[in-house]
Simulated scan of single mutants.
Amino acid sequence: MWVWLAVSFSALLHINAAYRGPQWQFYLFKPLTIVLLLATTLQFGHGDIYQQWIIAGLLCSVAGDIFLMLPKDKFVPGLTSFLLAHIVYSLAFWNELSGPIVWWLPALLMGAGIIVYLLLLPSLGRLALPVGVYIGVIIQMTWAAGEYWLTTRTGSGLAAFAGAMVFLVSDTLLALDRFRGRFRAATGSIMTTYYLAQSLLVVSVLLR
């Protein structure tokens, strides 16, 4: 209970600082929130390979957070860090399948991904290929999480799928804000969904 209050408080402090300052609070609590989730996973996980993959994804996410919040925004290194995070999360999910996969889920997710990519494409310029690859990887990660839930019907699988879906929403909001025009509620919406997504992935470890 207390650890989730700490995570929520840390996330709230970061989001508040994004709008009102101070700057040190913005820089401190963005990665600290994920570090708290990482510590929770290390302390309460069961030491299996699934936990190890989620830990690796959280570490990549901390690196991505740091790159994206630097005064001189390192977007490509940040994108690469989160790309690696989604890959290792995918490995965690695919490793848990215990039955035949379904094909309607990737079809739906791919259709949504293509629509988002086409909306972004006119503004992407030289980032068209990296962003396209990133969208493909996160769609695949969400598919993997969905298969984990559909083939196991466990609480862990449901938390993983919910986390992946919320991550998809968060990254879509981030892309729209960055490439289609900024909006005031962007930071609050992006970071709330981002922290919720990562928290759900940690819950998927704790429910095993």
Rank of each mutant, 00 (worst) to 15 (best):
G21T: 10
V202A: 04
L207E: 03
F179H: 07
V131A: 00
A145W: 00
M191F: 10
P130L: 11
A197W: 04
M141I: 07
W149E: 02
V7M: 06
W24N: 08
L5C: 11
F167M: 10
V131H: 01
S8H: 02
Q52D: 07
Y50K: 08
L79M: 13
G132E: 04
R208W: 03
A6I: 13
L97V: 12
Q52P: 01
A128S: 14
N95C: 04
T192R: 02
L84K: 03
P100T: 11
A39E: 06
L105T: 11
A18K: 09
Q140F: 14
A164V: 09
L58A: 10
M191H: 05
I115R: 10
P31W: 01
C60M: 13
Q140K: 07
V203F: 10
M110G: 15
R178Y: 01
T142S: 14
Y27R: 14
D177Y: 00
V76L: 15
Y194S: 11
I34T: 15
Y117A: 06
A85M: 09
G132M: 05
Y148M: 14
L108P: 01
H46Q: 13
N16T: 13
L13C: 12
T33L: 04
V62K: 02
F29R: 02
F93Q: 04
W24T: 11
W4F: 12
F26I: 01
T154S: 15
F167Y: 13
Y195S: 07
